[in-house]
Nucleic acid binder design. Structure first.
Lengths: 216, 216
DNA sequence: CAGCATCCGCTTTGATACTG
DNA sequence: CAGTATCAAAGCGGATGCTG
């Protein structure tokens, strides 16, 4: 293993998690929960198969993930985060937050080929339900190629394709201002000016945006 | 530039900051402020000179750092974080926090060659003065090869070699439990059992430990 | 087919030497 | 001091093949 050889906590973390793909593997496990080798492969387009195997070994050795062999009859191994691996959530969140402007900028650049499912990463990585004890909420988002639902579930926030007649709020408009509004980069007024329409109660949105930092 | 090609804010951040040394350069600028090329080189033992030059170019292009040419007479360029670069503080902090156990583990392993100056990274990266409006505090730490002072200054926390007769508190003992106590991994009772002695008021310590997360 | 290991060409990194 | 130039070694991406 190549290390920085520095007695610094940041350098130590990079010694373990600084290799290419490592943090993205952790992201996959955070978003989707325990996953098979192939699930990870599908979620990480471009990774070489040997690299994925290498990384999984290294992360297991570092105590970040665990490989659970499934029971003998059916059986394919499942990879899941250890508690120690789950503690990387703050790291992933901080990096995801920093990346939101890059994401918005990329949307401006790369033509019109936006897929609604891309909402998944910003939402799941970046948002937390700050009031998990209150009734769950659902926000429907109409942007891009298919409607998406943003839902709270057990303190976390998920996004999945779908629609719901009884959503607490409905957002519609071009991807860029919609994402900027969702992630709190712009306010409602600015979003409206950029073509975002909504119905329902947007307090629901405020509940799942960062700000209060309910992680601690 | 090699990118992951994913529409995910984490992947976008890694596209920019995921290369080897990049985050450590940012760390140097966070700890020491605007720095010359040689200062960075000294703070990053092992980096190849061409890599440092490459990274500085890339980070400048990404808007993370700025290169300020000094005025014509004297003159050597200074590198400093842009506001956008300074926003990486949460990322660095989260990674540093995750790395504390690795640091402690490394101290157990690597013989007795501990240098007190290594306190610098954990302290500066990991701690924040949660009460910057109150009078500054000073904690003297006697561990390793030379006494260190931990001081609050303008909301930040620094560590530097030195001693102060009038420090608010004095900690003494073996490096491992001292660091664990400082970073809040263990409590006072456990630290005492591990050979840590103290005089003065340890409330000062509590003021600069994480917990309340005064970053937002 | 899932879960790798192997081989190969390319890119990135590391160590050192050299220059304005 | 602040880099550039050079070259070997390591890491990575892609394809392929092997094993249950």
């Amino acid at each position: 293993m190549r290390t920085y050889g520095q007695h610094c906590p940041l350098a130590k973390t990079l010694d373990v998690m600084g290799d290419r793909w490592s943090l993205l593997i952790v992201r996959e496990l955070m978003i989707h929960g325990p996953s098979r080798y192939t699930d990870l492969r599908n979620g990480l387009p471009g990774i070489a198969t040997n690299l994925l195997a290498d990384r999984l070994r290294e992360l297991e050795q570092a105590g970040v993930i665990r490989r659970d062999e499934a029971p003998p009859p059916i059986a394919t191994a499942l990879f899941r985060l250890t508690p120690r691996g789950d503690e990387l959530r703050d790291v992933v969140k901080a990096m995801a937050q920093w990346g939101i402007p890059l994401l918005l900028h990329a949307l401006d650049q790369e033509g019109e080929e936006f897929h609604s499912r891309w909402l998944g990463s910003p939402v799941t990585l970046y948002m937390t339900d700050t009031a998990p004890d209150r009734p769950p909420i659902t926000i429907q988002v109409n942007t891009g190629d298919e409607p998406m639902l943003i839902e709270t579930i057990g303190g976390a926030v998920r996004a999945r394709p779908g629609h719901d007649e009884h959503a607490d709020a409905v957002l519609s408009g071009p991807p860029r201002p919609v994402i900027a509004l969702i992630t709190g980069r712009i306010g409602l007024a600015e979003a409206k000016a950029a073509g975002v329409g909504y119905t329902g109660n947007l307090d629901a949105l405020r509940r799942i945006q960062p700000g209060v930092a309910a992680t601690a």
